[in-house]
């Protein structure tokens, strides 16, 4: 056997370890998944609205401005935590937020919005979770940034924290330009 070949195990070893090292030092959350809908159109859906008498029709709603889509439910406690930031998006930044009420009791949801304040321009009801599946949602709360023409630009999984709030604002500014 050629002597040079004996160095192969060490080279392979170094390559593998460098991959591990790279993955360790970059800031990454192993359980976060990139959305498969990025840069694609929002899924079409029609749903009852929690607040209005007419149905919510997605094709009519998305189009001109930047919209946040937030999946929430009253039974999900992280949703309560992030509600402050959702309100700040709507009230301070003047961004339209659509809240999709996921597998929830409608009376509870109305009560919830009454107590905590309603930042949503409309609240379509996703009774059986099918709308969420069309959006590729796997754990609420999830928040999407949708730009004009209804194209999804970003998805955040989990509650919006101060850090994420800043990040989303920055992204929105970038998209606007």
């Amino acid at each position: 056997m050629k002597k040079q070949l004996l160095i192969i195990p060490s080279i392979l070893f170094v390559l593998i370890l460098s991959t591990f090292f790279y993955l360790l030092i970059i800031e990454r959350n192993p359980s976060e998944l990139p959305s498969n809908l990025l840069n694609k159109n929002v899924p079409n859906f029609k749903a009852e609205s929690l607040l209005k008498n007419e149905n919510f029709v997605s094709s009519k709603e998305f189009g001109n401005e930047i919209i946040l889509v937030n999946f929430f439910a009253t039974w999900c406690s992280p949703c309560r935590d992030e509600h402050v930031y959702i309100k700040r998006f709507a009230n301070e930044k003047g961004i339209r937020v659509i809240g999709i009420n996921y597998k929830d009791n409608s009376n509870n949801a109305i009560e919830w919005l009454k107590n905590l304040g309603n930042p949503y321009s409309d609240v379509p009801i996703d009774k059986d979770g099918r709308i969420a599946i069309d959006w590729g949602v796997y754990g609420i709360p999830e928040t999407f940034i949708v730009k004009s023409k209804g194209i999804i630009k970003y998805r955040h999984v989990g509650p919006i924290t101060k850090k994420i709030y800043k990040k989303i604002n920055l992204l929105i500014r970038e998209i606007e330009q």
Binding site: V14, L17, F21, L24
Partner: peptide, 28 residues
Amino acid sequence: DPSRGIYILIFAALLGGYSLILFGVKSK
């Protein structure tokens, strides 16, 4: 805890680097 990961990684690199190079040089 990334600090644990980095420690074990460095340790593995030392062990692996030394032993595999030793093997490459001395196993003839």
